[in-house]
Each structure stands twice: as structure tokens, then as C-alpha cells.
Design a protein around this nucleic acid. Structure first.
Lengths: 256, 256
DNA sequence: CGGGCGATTCGCACCAGGTGAGAATCACGG
DNA sequence: CCGTGATTCTCACCTGGTGCGAATCGCCCG
């Protein structure tokens, strides 16, 4: 066991492939064979063989006459596949649309996956456009979003500690929680209310409110939320809460 | 050498990783360990190790209490990285906007990568919305799109033959070219005009016209195109041609 | 036209590390 | 409390991935 820092678990060759893809994707202009070879600490012959394999499977490619490898169509297809796995049925869409109409605000459906959160669907309109920083796909900074707090609230102390250890508490605005014990208090309140609220923690001037979606087994699987201007939040809070709770209920029911 | 259909080239373990990701992505609800094991023809111990490795790198994950593995956040990030490698500079965006305004039609910037074509940017508007079937990312059926014909026209006979052998000539509409010799004639015309046109070959009732974008070396690297209703095409053709040629020129100039 | 320098491929022997089989253990649901 | 399926463990085998060095290739530059 030469695990110096406990990070290199698993099949080496597999890890290499993944690291290679990451490395190539990390640079907007791609990587040359030599650069990748240095990055992965591999002999050049091996590097070329690996590149040939990836290229053969269409995961990478390069422009003719260019020596840099860039991500190819297979990666694009995979990226699309991720989104196809964020299943959104027409009833769910309808429920979310109703939330948008009731709340007069952009509405989001998120699903939880272990420590990660993916935005599965967004219902917005010209009058109530979505937050630009949010997109369909995985979301960051769980501790600063309303649906993130909902997910964290479903964890017990040990799981939360593990999460914090792995992710830390990044700060995005002046009001972001960055203190673990404050967060724990917030999560207790979330558990008590079965509702999460976030005020200018994720983006300045923005507030978000989220209600839990549960699967047939009663387990928490996601959230329905809306975002509004922070200054309007207090005046609208009551109506927003009714809307997201109703929406979350309808989505939950549509699953079982 | 050129094993046309021999599939087993390269590093086995790498191919396995890629096949595993593909397989998991191919099913909207993901795969169980047993299913993947069957799919890859691997022993179960090995399968679990591979899954653990992929999970460790966040390429896959699964909902708590669920036995199916699904694609994870790292894949989402890769998918986003692909798009970040489709570099679009502000001048290019501006040039494309001008094409949209001149032509009064949605305008597309595509880049060529070997046999593949990626849509790098779309400029549309409420009055002139984009074709819904087209999205930023890789595009299919090159032989049926205007920009695709442009790419194919840059190939010589041998390269074209190789392309046809690998991709075939899928038919999408009643007017799709499906005959290689007809396609060859079309491509000759494209070469002569340095312009490609497509009438209801890709989508019914839709026409598309594309002009070539060249890099500093003079090599063809992409295309600027617009799409309009097929019935309007003849009346508007002259203006559209001027617009895309001008746009392609501006983009080409903005690169060198 | 010829040298020269990267980029890329080839050949080969070594052995790390991935593999399969089977058994043990765990996790549930009945 | 048992049975079934999921998951992990153990271990010896041997494939297949690896590095090194050299051979080619391709292209720029003088």
C-alpha cells in the first residue's frame, strides 16, 4: 500500500485514462503528446498508444496539421447522456411550470446524487428569467444554495463532517456561511421546517427557497425551488413557500 | 495498418474504461454492476474494482439505496470542457451577429475536426429562431448539411471514399442525397462556387447556405451558415450568399 | 537540395499490476 | 431467522502494458 495521501485507489490504468481526459479538457486549446506525457508521467511510447486508443474511440481528436489533441465527439455524447439521465417526465415539468406561474419566479427542479446536486430542469420565462449562473447539469457550493442545504440537512453528523472535510465551505458573497457550527444550526432549522431558505449567500441580491422531493420509499431525492430578488423576499415569502411545497408534493406524488 | 473495421486497436484497459462509460451513459437509468459485467465481459470482482475507480474519480455515482450506477459530475464537467474548446472570440461573435442581422435569419458558426463537425456558436433571435434540431456541440449527417458538404468538399477522392465507408449516407428527408455519385457531383459544384447549399435534405421545409472559413495557413477550418424556410430560399438566395460570404471572410480575418 | 530537429512509430524484454474463481461477508426483505 | 442477491476479500497466475532506445517520418530553415 503506497498510498501516500490516501488518494490513489483503484485500477491504475483506468485512473490514467480519466486523468488524461481531464487534462486534455482542462486546457482550452488542448494538449500535445509531449505535454500529456509530462502531465501523466508516462513514457512517450505509452502516451502515444494511449492517445491512439482514445482517438480511435473518438474521445479525442485533432485538427489536421495541428499537434494538439482536443476532446472529441464521444465526450460530447457522454455529456449529453448525463443530462438524459436527469429524468424529467411531463408531469414533473407541468408541476414545475405551475410553481413558476404561482410564484411568478423561475422554478428549478434538482436531484441529489450522493454529495452532488444536479439541476434537472428549469422553468422560466421572459418576465421571470432564470439565474444565469445556474444551468442544467451539476451544481457547486451546496452549502450556499437552498436546495443544497436541503441535501445537507438529510445527512447525519458523521456524513456532514465527511462532506465538510471533502468540500470545505467556500465563500461566494459577503453573506455566505463559512462557519461549520452556524451551518449546523441552519441545517437544524431546515430539518425542523422541512424547508430551506437562502438569502444572498450564493449570489448578491438573490434569494432562494426550496422544498424537499421524496421518492416512494420516503427518502429525500431532490428539491423544488424558486429564486427571487432578495429585497422582495420577505413580502413574498409566504406565497413562495406555498408554491414550492405544493410543487414538491406534486413531483413526489408523480414519482411514486 | 488501416484496419477498416477491425475494432481492437490500442490499450485494452483504456478501451474498457471508455466502453464502460459509454455503456453506463447509454441507458437513461444507468446500469447495475452485474449488467456492466455482462456488457464488458469482465469478471465481477474486476467490474467492481473498475466501478470503484470510476466512482472515486467522480465519473460515475449512484443514488443512495440504489444499485444502478449513473454518470457523475466529472462527465458533466468534461462535457462542458468540450464546449469550452470550441473557441469563439468576441469578434467572431460580432461577425456572426452581423450575418444574422444582414440575412434576417439564424446564423451558425461551425468548426471542422477531422471527420467531425461541431457547432461552435449560434446567433438567433425571437424573430428568427434557430433550428431546434441543432445545438452547440457535435453535429451529425455531414452529407446532408450545407456546412457538412463544405467539409466533405475539402477532401480528395480517397479521403471521401474513406469517409463514406465509415459513415454511409443516411437519409433524413425525401430529398436527402443517398447516392455517392450524386454527392460527388454536388461536391464538385461546392468546390467551384466555394459555397454550399442544401435544400430540404436535412429537415423538411428548411434550406441552409454556408461559406467557408479558412485559417491563417489557408486551410479550411470551418463555416458560417444561415438557415431559412425552403420556400423563401430562391427569393432570398442572393442576399443570403452575400451575408454568409461576408461573415466567413470576417471570421477568417479575425483568426489570422 | 541537404542538414537538423521535433514528432511519431517500432521492437523487445521485463514484470507490475490487472485478472478470474471462489469463498466470505454484508444487506435486506420476507 | 433464513435465503437471496450485492459486494468485498484473498491469492496465485500470467497477460498485457511499460520503458528504453533506436529507427522513421515530416517539415522547416538555411
Amino acid at each position: 500500500m503506497t498510498t501516500t495521501s490516501g488518494a490513489d485507489v483503484g485500477i491504475r490504468s483506468a485512473t490514467r485514462v480519466l486523468r488524461a481526459l481531464r487534462a486534455i479538457g482542462a486546457s482550452p486549446s488542448g494538449l500535445t503528446a509531449a505535454e500529456l506525457s509530462a502531465e501523466l508521467d508516462l513514457g512517450q511510447a505509452t502516451t502515444y498508444r494511449l492517445l491512439a486508443t482514445l482517438q480511435d474511440a473518438d474521445y479525442i481528436g485533432r485538427q489536421p496539421g495541428e499537434h494538439r489533441y482536443i476532446l472529441g465527439r464521444a465526450v460530447d455524447e457522454l455529456g449529453r447522456a448525463v443530462q438524459s439521465q436527469l429524468v424529467v417526465t411531463p408531469p414533473m415539468r407541468a408541476a414545475l411550470r405551475a410553481v413558476h406561474d404561482d410564484a411568478e419566479a423561475p422554478a428549478y427542479l434538482t436531484v441529489f446524487r450522493g454529495d452532488d446536486i444536479a439541476v434537472a430542469h428549469i422553468e422560466d420565462s421572459l418576465a421571470h428569467p432564470q439565474i444565469t449562473q445556474l444551468h442544467v447539469g451539476f451544481s457547486e457550493a451546496s452549502h450556499l444554495t437552498a436546495f443544497g442545504k436541503l441535501m445537507l440537512a438529510s445527512k447525519d453528523d458523521a456524513q456532514l463532517a465527511r462532506y465538510l472535510e471533502r468540500h470545505g465551505l467556500r465563500s461566494l458573497t459577503h453573506d455566505s456561511v463559512t462557519d461549520a457550527s452556524t451551518l449546523r444550526d441552519q441545517l437544524d432549522e431546515v430539518r425542523a421546517q422541512q424547508l430551506a431558505v437562502e438569502l444572498e449567500e450564493y449570489l448578491p441580491k438573490l434569494a432562494c427557497i426550496a422544498a424537499p422531493v421524496c421518492g416512494a420509499s420516503g427518502r429525500l431525492i431532490g428539491a423544488v425551488s424558486v429564486s427571487v430578488q432578495a429585497k422582495d423576499f420577505n413580502a413574498r415569502a409566504y406565497a413562495l413557500e406555498r408554491a414550492v411545497r405544493r410543487g414538491a408534493w406534486r413531483v413526489s406524488a408523480g414519482i411514486g
